[in-house]
Amino acid sequence: MTPEAAAAISASPRTGRRPRFSGIRFLDGALGVWTALVFAFLYLPIVVLVVYSFNTSRLNIVWESFTLRWYGELFDHTPLMRTFKNSLIIAAAATALSVVIGTAGAWLLHRYRYRWARGLQSLVCVPMVMPEIVMGVSLLVFFAVAGIELGHSTVIIAHTTFCFPFVLVAVQARLQGLDPSLEEAALDLGATPLRAFWLVIVPCLRPAILSGGLMAFTLSMDELIISLFTASPDARTLPMQVFGMAKVGLNPMINALSALFIVTTVAFVLFSEHLRRLANR
């Protein structure tokens, strides 16, 4: 699970008031320094990674000189490229499935008063908080017993299982702020419930669906432990490959890879923020 998941779990409507009290204002400076230190702690390894990705030395010890060699080698490395492709396929499929299941689930749980809804909600959240190792192991034994051969499909199933609750929860948070008369108005105007859902509700939920889907995608791209148990050799994911390579020593190619990942994800985030702002306008 990643932090955006944590944010989604405890997502809440904002009130956005500023503190006006003066009693603890003097603490603010100290807290600011503390927060800066926390950020330094969070970013130290990232900086190290990026800096060493330009280092000619193979061992991450001393700075020798600047090179782009590792970035070049990265693209010639067959297993990295192949597993990257696998990861993209798996993440895309898992995201698509998660978006469909999660959005529909959130809407239905919102619209209907199901019996055992509370229990159901807890069940949905189980894969979010369940220890990855237990989930991976239980899926592995399940696939073995059910006679399902491991492959791309099993990884996609596993990833969807822990991704869709994140979409569901994100959409649920958005639904809470939704005006219930919206759907009623559409129904009164003669739309079928399905059309009302497509034409009225889904557009309102779009930011939540997008951010939920984005979350599902990043979660799937980064997942290691569950994949270790559910992937076949030809469906290995990028994190599995990275894990295998990193286990046998630090490799500057992996530094380069993560530097690229950081740049891409930051761009991704900025883009989705931009989308969100457009949607909220």
């Binding site: 698509a96 499909s153 889904v202």
Partner: peptide, 24 residues
């Protein structure tokens, strides 16, 4: 347009799973 997007997304998901579900 959004409807079409969602349907496409759903279809993509279906294709993805069926394509990989069949042992190749």
């Amino acid at each position: 347009k959004k409807l079409r997007h969602l349907i496409l997304l759903g279809l993509a998901a279906l294709c993805a799973t069926t394509a990989f579900a069949a042992p190749k």
